[in-house]
């Protein structure tokens, strides 16, 4: 993942939310992006995920330059190369845990049998087999976040992005999520996570990047 002079302004002539950021994350790394509220860390995550476009500069992920892609191509890119875990899970209430996990695979047209096998494998890995047919309202916060992680991994993405993954769960569930992300990274999964919690960064990341006022102020090994 490579950003070159990536700048994002939400209003023309306004202060940049992200100001000429250069950042490279290599395959297999686990990078924590830290910073106070409004520093630009979520904006950085959005650019990397292809959820938003830079006002100027260059964003490249898994060999694809995102600036040049149409909205449809960006959708396909995210489906194939990026998995996202949100702070508030954002599971679909009408779908069971298993169907939530299957959703990106079904959107991408993965053959049903293969998709189901992959989902069951992930649910088993994350300790959710017995909760596969439960609906989000019936799951605990930790379980929901694990379902969200499984959903992010269903299409075997090159890059796993996590936005405050422990921000909406209790301490015990948070610890489980931290262990899970670390385990995933140890299997070679590239992880970029946004957090304001130094403990999370310390346990999950191999490198920490600090963003302040839209600029990278510090990049140190965790």
């Amino acid at each position: 993942m490579r950003l070159r002079a990536a700048t994002k302004r939400y209003e023309a002539g306004g202060a940049p939310a992200l100001d000429a950021v250069d950042l490279t994350v290599n395959a297999g790394e686990a990078v924590a992006i830290m910073g106070p509220s409004g520093s630009g860390k979520s904006t950085l995550l959005n650019l990397v995920a292809g959820l938003d476009r830079p006002t100027s500069g260059h964003v490249e992920v898994a060999g694809t330059v995102l600036n040049r892609l149409s909205e449809s191509a960006l959708s396909r890119f995210r489906r194939q190369h990026v998995g996202i875990v949100f702070q508030f899970f954002h599971l679909l209430d009408d779908l069971s845990a298993r169907d939530n996990v299957l959703l990106p695979a079904r959107l991408g047209g993965t053959p049903p049998r293969a998709a189901r096998a992959r989902a069951d494998e992930l649910l088993e890995t994350l300790g959710l087999t017995t909760r596969a047919h439960a609906f989000p309202q019936q799951l605990s916060g930790g379980e929901r976040q694990r379902v969200a992680v499984a959903r992010a991994l269903i299409n075997r993405p090159a890059l796993l992005l996590a936005d405050e993954p422990t921000g909406a769960v209790d301490t015990k569930a948070g610890a489980q999520i931290i262990d899970l992300l670390r385990d995933l990274n140890s299997t070679g999964q590239t992880v970029v996570l946004v957090t304001h919690d130094p403990e999370v960064a310390q346990h999950c990341a191999t490198r920490t990047v600090e963003v302040r006022d839209g600029r990278i102020s510090q990049a140190v090994p965790a």
Binding site: L51, S75, P104
Partner: peptide
């Protein structure tokens, strides 16, 4: 709208 945002984030195309 947020649900739509999530669906787009996990790969739903504009046509979908």
């Amino acid at each position: 709208v947020q649900e739509i945002g999530v669906l787009k984030a996990i790969g739903m195309t504009p046509r979908q």
